[in-house]
Design a protein around this nucleic acid. Structure first.
Lengths: 200, 200
DNA sequence: GCGAAACGTGCAGTCCGTGCAATGTTGCGT
DNA sequence: ACGCAACATTGCACGGACTGCACGTTTCGC
């Protein structure tokens, strides 16, 4: 499937750099860590670092563009009779489960580090942003409109990103004791109801 | 009111730098413009540039933190019987009117330039982000919850930012021929209705 | 006016990010 | 097994972003 020694090595190096970046920044803060430090811990030359990430910040966030188109593809693959919101909820449910199930500490550490550095939050937004653009096209296709003619596709795509980010943030705030899928669901419940003031 | 020669000069220099940055980047693109170029056009030394903006990108975006808390304050000032969404709509309506009425070309140019550079979009998101944090607190106060206990305040604050950004983007896409307040309203209609698929 | 505080500026230095060219590794055909 | 072609790693040199510091100049409150 993944085949090739080359491919595997590349993936391994990329992950090593990402984890080195995460750990170091968690210890010393973003400004206390240089690209040279990260490269050193991952056992590659500083120059090689930039073959894997265009930016120090990107190495810390460590989400590749390939995972980005995924959401739009999954959305398109959902049964046609589902409404856009229903389809999105299903996609998010799947993603949330995957994130919560990964190497365990990766996402928590990532989120903790990102949350402490506004620059990285912005970077994360940028990553989501390109996913949302693809998603907007997919939504437009499903509803028979175009992104230019109607606000709906762009709005819904952006809102879905917001829902996921909010859930991730709440997950972090709960110190990862809450269930991520449950938080995602909660967010979508509020959205689907038109954001009414919560009863107390 | 604004008093002091010092204050006025500072404001003027800040604006000069921002506009210099905008124009230059519009002409040559973000990478074609150096801080020295911007400082030169605004008639200050390169070193002085950094007394006004922490970053080249910030000078291009040019939105100060003072305008940021504004949304939360206005929200809090709304009559108490309004629901959170109603109050937010009112605040956004006012903001949209102001933006559309400003020096005319400032926002259009800003949006055009920002939209062409993902890095700047991220920076804009960061600015909105701090506004949203303040807003979340205000929303929590209004609904009698706290930001920690419930997703609602954070979610609604983030969604409101999304609504405004989406409207701004649609405004840009219409080449500024559409009415910004109308676009904002349209976005909120969809949100308040729970984001149903648009009828065709 | 006058002293204190704020502002503008130059200088030196660190780090980020990139193009280029040399060197080492891997994959593949024979 | 061999050698060549493709690709990955690395060092070097460079331009630009940003910061701390020190010094001269301007403005403010009295």
């Amino acid at each position: 499937m993944t085949s090739g020694l080359r491919e595997r090595k590349k993936l391994a190096t990329r992950l090593a750099l990402h984890q080195a970046a995460l750990q170091l920044v968690a210890e010393r803060g973003l400004d206390g860590v240089s690209v040279d430090d990260i490269a050193a811990r991952a056992d590659v030359s500083p120059r090689t670092f930039f073959n894997y990430f265009p930016t120090k910040d990107d190495a810390v966030v460590g989400i590749d563009a390939s995972a980005v188109g995924q959401a739009a593809e999954r959305f398109t693959a959902r049964p046609a009779q589902e409404s856009p919101v229903e389809a999105l909820r299903a996609v998010h449910a799947q993603q949330a489960t995957e994130m919560a199930g990964e190497p365990e500490t990766l996402w928590p550490l990532r989120l903790r580090v990102i949350d402490e550095h506004p620059v990285l939050v912005a970077r994360l937004h940028a990553v989501f942003g390109s996913a949302e653009r693809a998603l907007a096209d997919a939504i437009a296709a499903r509803t028979g409109t175009t992104v230019g003619a109607d606000v709906y596709p762009t709005l819904l795509a952006a809102v879905s990103g917001t829902a996921m980010r909010t859930a991730l943030h709440a997950w972090l705030a709960s110190d990862f004791s809450a269930s991520l899928p449950a938080l995602v669901d909660e967010a979508w419940d509020a959205l689907a109801a038109g954001l009414p003031a919560p009863r107390r």
